[in-house]
Design a protein around this nucleic acid. Sequence first.
RNA 1: GCCAAGGUGGCAGAGUUCGGCCUAACGCAGCGGCCUGCAGAGCCGCCCAUCGCCGGUUCAAAUCCGGCCCUUGGCUCCA
Length: 494
Amino acid sequence: MTLRVTNTLTGEREAFEPRDPDSVLLYYCGLTTSDPAHLGHARGWVHVDVMHRWLAHLGYDVRHVENFTDVNEKIVARVGEDGESEADVARHYVQSVIDDMRALNLRRAEVYPRVSEHVPEIVAMVETLIEKGYAYEANGSVYFDVTTFEEYGKLSNQQLDEIEAQGDPDEQSEKRNPADFALWKAGGVDPAAIEDHQHEGASPPEAACESAQTWDSPWSEGRPGWHIECSAMSTTHLGETIDIHVGGQDLVFPHHENEIAQSEAATGQQFARHWLHVRLLETKGEKMSSSLGNFFTVEAAVDEYGTDVVRTFLLSTAYHNSAVYSEATIDEAIERWETLERGYERAVRACDDVDAYATVEDDTLRTAVTTAREHFETAMNDDFNTREALAALTELVGAVNVHVDEQSSFDYRALREVVETIEELGGGVLGLSFGYSEDGDVSVAEDLVELLLDVREAERAAGNYERADELRDEVESLGVEVQDTDDGPTYRLG
RNA sequence: GCCAAGGUGGCAGAGUUCGGCCUAACGCAGCGGCCUGCAGAGCCGCCCAUCGCCGGUUCAAAUCCGGCCCUUGGCUCCA
């Protein structure tokens, strides 16, 4: 069973073939650090995270690089609001992104390069493009001449004469072709360019632009263009050809198209073997986006629902299809996660039950484990179908419930395998937090909960159900879920 | 206008690459039952889909071909 991925370049679901059979070079286009990250960004991150984890699970050595665009006009537009200079604002949001990523339980990428730290590499790449005749200078700015790169448009299937002009009016007059794009821009940021992006509390445009960073170059004191950064950073950290380049589907054109043109023109090598695009998260029929103002921040989502629910929600739709955020879809994710978590804990408890050591053999449960593993593997190998992978785990949990409900003693070995499977696939691959460590606070809390439940049992035994229900309500109001069973109450810390 | 991806039950969402195991997965909501002092959880069962429309190929199509309608995204910073 081999991994298949949908490649935007070919438009087909094809066998994944890294340059080297043992390792994968993975690049993800990160975000511009000018606003808090929202659930749409989180969707990309979590899916890339799971791709990373699955590739590692398959035995590949994964080198994963994800950039921060910390030089951008939208960042300048926040000056005064979130810092006193472009660099301050960028630092502020880089930190918030890092915090969000931790909150989402993402596996760390190997490097998180920033544009501001790669200007020399960017300048060098632009110089190469000029030397090779792919780029030209005009009034201190440098543009890529799209007519010199024969395959321009191959990713997005654009015809050159159909492409509308890129860039602002001043830029148009300097360019040879309307579709040419900037590699280097002379001077600082034009106040007029940021006005539309400013919020209340921001500095006046002129003052904000004063704080914008500029760098020396052979052509002018200026700033790097919008697309060259990813080419330069990817090449610097992963080399000329990478295996998987992932990004949001809104980046296909022009960003990724331009990256291909720049990189392949500069190196003469294929830039990325597989291009994967995460489709967008929608709310009420339109994409979730900072500029549309219809977003739900990562921080708010994690605060409200918790990491596991947010991840379950995002993984409930395969990355390759657009997803809908609504109350109903979040509620479904809550139920799904709780079903998995309860099932897992039931299996753990059953394993720890003395009766579990009885020599029961439940073929149904044993088969269910094998089936779930196969189902999960098939799903993930089929273009990282996380929805289907979750379904595999849900089915396994159903089998556990049947087993525990129906058996008076348990199949220890099978339950052991269930627990390991859920921890390995649900925890290790999907990044959900199965298996909790019991630190001191938790165990004290558990002792206290048990004490309260003992009291309640006494009230129940005495027939004082009213008092018993009050006690249960009070315990539950503290975030503890109580379950009465034939063998007495069980509980779960929320 | 051009490029791309989609249209599957009340909701959500797999399956379409390689046509048959799809009388369409997992789930949410709803209904009935088991269990229970009650509730929740769990279990069992049920309800709801001729898979956008029209035509074609085939023994066989959600899956292939043609046409049409609609939605979303991109063509401007955007995950």
